[in-house]
């Protein structure tokens, strides 16, 4: 038996919004540690990994590890039936083929129960090593979203150059070129507005904006985004979900042929 309860449906709604454009089907792995999901997009260029820790839930019961195979589109549609302030309970039997989603209004006057058919999915899992990155940038998530969106008007890819004290995001295309320089904040009153740039060694890598724009669908989950970059390895774009977990995206770099 698996059953968990979150005080606000909003966070799970936003999490589904952050995933559904990138992946069509996925498996939620349920264990005593919480819920987790890992899935590559169909082109095997990017990967998303979600962790929602037990401690962040109101209640969490998992008698036996289970895998819940879901159609993301369906799950997102059902999640949309919840109001942001509703509390939400997810429930499934150990060998069941249904996931129950129960939404309760804050005053307790309305309870909605939806049952979603689960899928038997065989999804390849990748082993992602823990590693040190050459550079880590933290910046307001809305700012990163804006940069990706704006540069998409110029080209298909963005070149990210990190040096001490700042980052350059640049794009080239048929209509012209663009370069956006973001400087590390000197002092910031509000942590969410801060830009920090940690550099062990400067890096310069190129990534497809199409995928970065998919990743920025997670912007409503967190005021800050972190970009971890090392030469010739995938970029990690991470959004922390306060008190609950994270959504991390991995994107393989582009190379000049």
């Amino acid at each position: 038996m698996f059953e968990c309860r979150l005080p606000k449906a909003e966070v799970l709604k936003k999490t589904m919004d952050a995933l559904k454009d990138l992946i069509k089907e996925a498996v939620w792995d349920v264990s005593a540690q919480g819920l987790s999901l890992q899935s590559m997009d169909s082109s095997h260029v990017s990967l998303v990994q979600v962790t929602l820790r037990t401690e962040g839930f109101d209640t969490f019961r998992c008698d036996k590890n289970i895998a819940l195979g879901v159609n993301m589109d369906t799950m997102q549609k059902l999640m949309k039936c919840a109001s942001n302030d509703d509390n939400i309970t997810l429930k499934s039997e150990d060998n069941g083929d249904l996931l129950s989603l129960i939404f309760e209004s804050p005053n307790g006057e309305k309870t909605s129960e939806y049952e979603m058919k689960l899928m038997d999915l065989d999804i390849e899992q990748l082993g992602i090593p823990d590693q040190e990155y050459s550079c880590t940038i933290k910046m307001p998530s809305g700012e990163f979203q804006r940069i990706c969106r704006d540069l998409s008007n110029i080209g298909e890819s963005v070149n990210i150059t990190v040096v001490k004290g700042g980052v350059d995001f640049s794009a080239k295309g048929d209509i012209g070129n663009a370069k956006i320089h973001v400087t590390e904040s000197s002092n910031v009153d509000n942590e969410k507005d801060a830009v920090t740039v940690e550099v062990n060694e400067p890096v310069n890598l190129t990534f497809a904006l199409r995928y970065l724009n998919f990743f920025t669908k997670a912007t409503p989950l967190s005021g800050q985004v972190s970009l971890s970059i090392s030469p010739d390895v995938p970029l990690v774009v991470a959004y922390e979900i306060e008190d609950l977990g994270h959504v991390k995206y991995f994107l393989a770099p582009k190379i000049e042929n």
Binding site: S43, V45, Q125, L126, G127, I128, P234, A252, K254
Partner: peptide
């Protein structure tokens, strides 16, 4: 010409 690498090149399946 830029080529987008696949993630499988970096991470092993398990």
């Amino acid at each position: 010409i830029w080529k987008q690498l696949e993630l499988n090149r970096f991470y092993s399946g398990h």
